[in-house]
């Protein structure tokens, strides 16, 4: 029912008790009236339409009613312990946040931000209104680009085989073997250093165009594959009009680095997930993660 105020049939919106038949999944915060309802396809397949919940004159939350049978604490813990379920939940969250961002700037909330009803959601979110206002201002008209720099590993990563075919027991064979090993290690360290320098050049080039940047921890070889070692996993907040400039600059930086088996990978635009944390973070850290009791 587009255009109508948010209605939730069968449930009193302000019901604060914990045994309600549905929960409220909050995806993001955006400007009030950014849209009425996202097209079907957004949100969790088990839930209702993705709508807006008004927070104050200026801000709304992007919310969806989801059945408790699938989103209670116990059920969710089990579901998210399953890699397939975790992936589909994460992708749904991301897809919905991204769909909302087509209507204006959004501040994404972490996966599984769930409340027992609109009143609870409004109370919790309104306590952080200044943060939301600041974050929306920070990301307005900007997008996030992810840039990764990796070193392609040549076939020497595994230890060379022991010289089992060496006849007799000459110590010389062992020393020659050690010398070969040391030589390869030196070569590997040199390649690594060159690649680190290339990553630094890529970062400088991107930073020159970006408003802000964040360095994330590089992905492990389990994700990237044994054939590449990720050295940089960065995100840049870029004015929307500058994406082409960024592409050009990174292409140049990547081409300069290509000789050293260095790979520059760019993806985007992302909703600016990495740039919505409160700037005065230390005071907020106790509220993060572990202390959500």
């Amino acid at each position: 029912m587009p255009g109508l105020p948010r209605t939730t049939p069968g449930r009193s919106a302000d019901q604060p008790c914990s045994d309600v038949a549905s929960a409220l999944w909050v995806f993001a915060v955006c400007h009030a009236g950014a849209f009425a309802e996202l097209p079907s396809g957004a949100g969790h397949p088990e839930g209702g339409p993705v709508t807006l919940l008004r927070l104050d004159d200026l801000l709304s939350a992007v919310v969806q009613d989801v059945p408790s049978s699938r989103f209670s604490e116990e059920v969710l813990k089990q579901r998210l312990a399953d890699p397939g379920e975790l992936e589909s939940c994460a992708r749904t969250h991301h897809r919905t946040v991204t769909a909302a961002a087509e209507h204006g700037p959004v501040v994404p909330l972490p996966l599984a931000t769930l409340f027992n009803g609109e009143a609870r959601a409004r109370a919790a979110l309104c306590a952080r209104l200044p943060h939301f206002h600041a974050a929306l201002t920070r990301v307005r008209g900007r997008e996030e680009w992810a840039v990764k720099v990796s070193l392609r590993q040549t076939g020497t990563a595994s230890a060379p085989s022991a010289p089992q075919d060496a006849p007799g027991g000459q110590a010389g064979a062992g020393r020659a073997y050690l010398t070969r090993v040391r030589g390869r290690e030196r070569e590997r360290v040199a390649r690594h250093e060159q690649a680190v320098a290339a990553a630094a050049r890529v970062h400088r080039a991107a930073s020159a165009l970006a408003v802000e940047s964040v360095q994330r921890r590089p992905h492990s070889p389990q994700i990237t594959g044994k054939d590449r070692l990720q050295l940089m996993n960065a995100a840049y907040l870029v004015d929307r009009g500058r994406a082409l400039d960024l592409a050009t600059v990174l292409q140049r930086a990547g081409a300069d680095a290509a000789s050293a088996d260095v790979e520059v990978e760019v993806s985007g635009p992302w909703v600016p997930y990495s740039f919505t944390e409160p700037v005065e973070a230390p005071d907020d850290s106790p509220e993060r993660a572990g202390s959500r009791t």
Partner: peptide
Amino acid sequence: PGPSTTNLADILERVLDKGIVIAGDIKIDL
């Protein structure tokens, strides 16, 4: 809307770890 190549690791590190964390009623500890 979003990069064409959205690998799971990229999504997870964003949806799990970033942004303004609000204590929810349903406690899925991050």
